[in-house]
Write a protein that binds this DNA or RNA. Structure first.
Length: 329
DNA sequence: TATAAGGAAGGTC
DNA sequence: GACCTTCCTTATA
């Protein structure tokens, strides 16, 4: 059965199709965004958000790294189209299907379901806020796009390019500040980037939504991530201070959920860490410092500058891409 | 070929 | 001046 013609061969399944149907002319990274049928998308109100367009099932927490780690998300982006022989998945996630259940749930089941949905909603909101917060720290920008300067907008665009592995799109948005960006419609975005405008618009939507959420529900305890606090707090307290490379590396190391594929602790107590994906770490640093030409050669030179300063050194047993903080946390 | 080490010059704050 | 960034040469796995 052909994988390229989901529309013609799976019409009977359309309303329940999982959002991973590939399109012959569409980037697989975004195909499901375009193909996702309405009923597999949680409604916007699911997040308690206003009329903003649904930004795709994609959440920032499932960045490239998470996608690589998470087979579920891989299914979402890369799995082949369902066949008649393989029943549509995700039925259990489909509210429409749930409502079609011939045996209506009793009151207790309804309440349980409602609680589950509330928990999922809280979880999703929390993840979105956390990931926006992480990106804010790494990029040194405000969480609310309305507060962004032109430079911040460019940083955010570079970040988004990196996150979605997009070709360079930031040049189309030059000299726009956050307010300008937010005043743009989806059509305006498409005009700037025909292929990825809607994706950028959706991603901006997430940030705006996160800012709105944050305004509605300010964090009760900003120190809840106590284990991560000591170093990241230094950066949060002085958001306008330029971040040092060693601080940036710590930030990545303190977010293993997002970055363990590119940098991880070998021995946290001794401060020994390994750069697993040198190019990726260099790209992240380049995005953070607005240095698109950054590479591992340059980044490692900066790391070596720390040898003399006694901040970072090579461990006693020197290994490739393995470094050690002289003063571990 | 990728990484490691370090010199040197220059830019930005 | 501190802290990179960029470019370079040489050495090594």
């Amino acid at each position: 059965m052909s994988m390229g013609s989901p529309g013609s061969e799976h019409t009977s399944c359309t309303s329940l199709s999982p959002p991973y149907i590939s399109h012959p002319h569409t980037d697989t990274r975004t195909a499901w965004l375009e193909e996702a049928s309405e009923d597999v998308k949680p409604s916007r109100s699911f997040l308690g958000l206003p009329e903003l367009s649904w930004p795709g099932v994609y959440l920032p927490c499932y960045d490239r790294l998470a996608i690589e780690e998470n087979p579920w998300v891989l299914r979402m982006t890369e799995a082949p189209a369902p066949t008649a022989a393989s029943p549509c998945r995700n039925l259990e996630l489909n509210p429409a299907k749930l409502s079609q259940n011939p045996d209506p749930p009793n009151e207790m089941e309804g309440q349980t379901e409602e609680r589950c949905l509330e928990q999922v909603q809280t979880m999703v909101e929390g993840e979105v806020l956390k990931d926006v917060e992480t990106a804010c720290k790494l990029l040194n920008i405000a969480p609310d796009p309305l507060d962004w300067s032109c430079v911040h907008v460019q940083k955010w665009l570079l970040w988004t390019e990196h996150l979605y592995r997009l070709p360079q799109v930031s040049s189309a948005f030059q000299e726009l500040n956050g307010r300008d960006l937010c005043s743009m419609t989806e059509a305006d975005f498409r005009q700037c980037s025909l292929q990825f405008g809607d994706m950028l618009y959706a991603h901006l939507d997430i940030w705006r939504s996160a800012a709105a959420m944050k305004e509605r529900c300010p964090p009760e305890d900003s120190n809840s991530a106590a284990d991560n606090s000591s170093w990241s707090d230094v950066i949060s307290i002085y958001p306008s201070q330029p971040i040092h490379l060693w601080q940036f590396l710590r930030e990545l190391l303190l977010k293993p959920h997002n970055y363990s594929r590119c940098i991880r602790w070998i021995n946290k107590e001794k401060g020994i860490f390994k750069i697993e994906d040198s190019a990726h770490v260099a790209r992240l640093w380049g995005v953070r410092k607005n240095r698109p030409a950054m590479n591992y050669d340059k980044l490692s030179r900066s790391i070596r500058q720390y040898y003399k300063k006694g901040i970072i050194r090579k461990p006693d047993v020197s290994r490739r891409l393995v470094y050690q903080f002289v003063n571990p946390v």
